[in-house]
């Protein structure tokens, strides 16, 4: 895209603003139309409206981006000769990276475990909330759409709050505090929301949840950016993305199991706290943030690994390029 970091920052901000604006607009339009035509309780028609808007937008956008805007790209790299096939390469890479972190970077190891646990809970949050609001609180489509819109809107101040707190403390303490905030809100949701007619309470809690999510999302990325050892960004960012979704299946599976066992959905919602608390424990196991940073900054393993990688890397051009 570009290698100039200032331009990249500007582009990232623009991309976030554009996509965020469209999501909020589409949700607001659907809520507005359903309210305007008094379709608040006609969930089927509201779903038709929202999916029609989403479909039109999706087809237009992907046609423009994939049909006209994106150009051809060469392969990022080819496989080293005599090594694994495409079927196993990703898994071998993952295994190698995890082994290396386990041996060489104990602070990073705890960080990745924390990310795995906390992101699993955050990822399941929306779906569990939807189930809770629909099944237990009997919210209309309009109320649910409003909750999601509020949550998204309040993630902006959450992101600003994240930067502010991180500046005053450090990314590790900010991460711990963000998970504490998530715990508090999850507890409040499971305690306060009990029955239909609590839309206003849900809106307030959605705002709190939005702030906590925006805070957590931002500080997670700042933390990994500051802890990655030199020359290993590609590998460790890849693992960061994998860790972020490795356990996303677990909280919904536990919720489903509890639900099938006739356990109250509020207990299922509170169950997310277990993941957040375990995440906090893992962050605490990392030790002091300054020590963790010093360890990765002074560790020569990064350079050694980079040299090893270089010897395994095939010469440029071994993969046929379709680029211009």
């Amino acid at each position: 895209m570009t290698n100039d970091q200032k331009i990249l920052n500007e582009l990232t901000r623009g991309i976030s603003i554009l996509s965020f604006s469209f999501i909020v607009s589409c949700l607001a339009i659907t809520v507005g139309v359903s309210s305007g035509f008094d379709l608040m309780d006609d969930y089927e028609t509201v779903a038709h409206i929202s999916q029609s808007i989403a479909f039109c937008l999706f087809v237009t956008s992907v046609t423009l981006s994939w049909g006209f805007l994106y150009g051809p790209r060469p392969a990022a790299h080819a496989f080293p000769d005599g090594h694994h096939s495409v079927w196993t390469a990703g898994f071998v890479q993952l295994y190698t990276t995890i082994g290396k972190i386990h041996r060489q970077y104990p602070a990073l190891r705890w960080y990745y475990i924390a990310i795995t646990l906390s992101n699993a809970a955050v990822g399941a949050l929306l779906i569990i909330s939807m189930t809770f609001m629909t099944d237990q609180l009997d919210f209309s489509s309009q109320a649910i759409g409003t909750c999601v819109t509020i949550m998204l809107l309040f993630s902006i101040p959450g992101s600003i709050l994240s930067s502010w707190i991180t500046k005053r403390f450090n990314p590790l303490n900010s991460s711990i505090l963000s998970l504490v905030a998530m715990c508090i809100v999850a507890t409040l949701v499971s305690v306060v929301l009990k029955e239909p007619g609590q839309e206003v309470d849900a809106y307030l809690l959605s705002a709190s949840w939005g702030v906590a999510m925006g805070w957590n999302f931002t500080v997670d990325r700042m933390m990994i950016a500051s802890l990655i050892p030199p020359r290993q960004e590609a590998e460790l960012m890849g693992l960061f993305l994998f860790a972020g979704q490795a356990l996303n299946w677990l909280p919904p599976l536990i919720y489903t199991s509890l639900n099938e066992a006739n356990v109250s959905p509020r207990v299922g919602m509170a169950m997310l706290n277990v993941f957040f608390l375990l995440g906090i424990v893992c962050y605490l196991c990392m030790g002091r943030y300054s020590d963790a940073r010093a360890a990765v900054a002074s560790d020569p393993a990064g350079d050694n690994e980079a040299r090893e990688d270089k010897t395994q890397m095939p010469k440029e051009g071994t993969a046929k390029s379709t680029g211009k």
């Binding site: 937008l57 237009t60 999601v148 819109t149």
Partner: peptide
């Protein structure tokens, strides 16, 4: 934008 909107609308 397209993917996020689809999944936000579907979720809501």
């Amino acid at each position: 934008m397209a993917r996020s909107t689809v999944f936000a609308c579907a979720g809501a």
